[in-house]
Design a protein around this nucleic acid. Sequence first.
DNA 1: CGGAAAGTTGACGCGGGTCAAGGAATGTGG
DNA 2: CCACATTCCTTGACCCGCGTCAACTTTCCG
Lengths: 247, 247
Amino acid sequence: MSAPRQSLDIQTIKISCELCSLAELCLPRGLNEAEVRELDEIVKRGRPIQRGKHLYRMSDQDHSLYLVRTGSFKSYLSTDDGDEQVVGFHLPGELVGLDAFETGRHTCSTMAMETSTVCELPGEKLNHVCRSVPGLHNQLQSLIGKEISADHSMLLLLGKKSAEERLASFLVSLSRRFSERSFSPVEFNLCMSRQDIGNYLGLAVETISRLFARFQEDNLLAVDRRLIKIKDLPRLKSLVSRPTKKD
Amino acid sequence: MSAPRQSLDIQTIKISCELCSLAELCLPRGLNEAEVRELDEIVKRGRPIQRGKHLYRMSDQDHSLYLVRTGSFKSYLSTDDGDEQVVGFHLPGELVGLDAFETGRHTCSTMAMETSTVCELPGEKLNHVCRSVPGLHNQLQSLIGKEISADHSMLLLLGKKSAEERLASFLVSLSRRFSERSFSPVEFNLCMSRQDIGNYLGLAVETISRLFARFQEDNLLAVDRRLIKIKDLPRLKSLVSRPTKKD
DNA sequence: CGGAAAGTTGACGCGGGTCAAGGAATGTGG
DNA sequence: CCACATTCCTTGACCCGCGTCAACTTTCCG
């Protein structure tokens, strides 16, 4: 906290959008070298955030957006009566912080689920660069649209799907996201607790536990603590929407 | 359909952002006269959309945003197995169409619930005007943030709340929105069917019916078909979050 | 007026929440 | 290195909120 804010180490200097392995998933996608360098100018890369620490809290004033560089985060709402609703998990390359767009104050809190780093995009500077780099504006717009469409899918999941369909959807979505990041689509570590998964999916922890047990019995998965091996991805995908009940 | 597209009537000519009664809720908020006129230049005001007709359908290519001028719309996702999830209801002054931001194709469908009119903002022109009118950019950004925060609240509602809390939340939200539009906060017509309400809230139609009956018994509401009179708004608000179960 | 869509009400049953108890892994301090 | 606490996860027993099904009424609309 009291360390000089200007200090740079070799690690930090080396990181740039141009060299970042996430470029194809992240804001630089579709920009040319000069444009990426212009974006790079305004990106602030802070020190790592420890597991359990907040990137920001609900009602913090903040005009920045953040892109996850390494690690993972969860965003959640807290209600006055003390309980929470996880509204999203964020992997490297994903955008966080749009929730302050309305008033300049965050409407949810975002916490690191493991030691993580982000790239910060200060709002005013970002708007300015967007004006001179239209491709950046488009890319940002696209990420915003993605966020909204993802939220809509979650509304469908919470509004209509059974517990089994919810967990299957969740695993398939993680599988896809890991695979986009060049990790195995069939073997990965969950970065969140059963508690968080249940909360996110609108289910009790016990239900998550039971479903993992059942999926394992059915030879869909091998589960070892937080390590998931998907043994039959096609069948898992087929569980995402059930055979139609009526109509 | 075969009417000449250039035809204008006096009604249409008269409508401008400057004179529109929605201005304080809508994009022009906080803009000066000159800026509003610049915005006005690019707004396309089409003919009314009949009840049941679509403003757009899922997977339509579309780079415009829309602001509801009169009437009301619902947005919904359709799944491959044929059922639907309503993801939002839209009243005058509210923004519709962000769901095409990701790819330029809509990810949900939007249908008029009564004869309605919209103001269309063609994407490219809008970006252009935003560049010269920073206040417009901010206002748009704010509406985007509002949408995202609203979606998050819905996730909380669907993930955690009981049927009673859901319907109470819904009515309180409608009450607030009507009152912002200078309608009575305690007496209004529902523009949607019980079916749509149930779908939106993740409940069966029968549950909606029973809850309306119970709220009426409890002297919270007077319900006559789609006309709602809220008889005890404070108590209705108190139902929105229940007394905490544990922790 | 007739047929369809929308809404209401009752009976019934199940999916998943809640409670309780215990196990396994990780952290903490001595 | 061990004792102990804490958090995380699992499993079983129970039961209730709300979905489902069915029958009927009311309203809407051509």
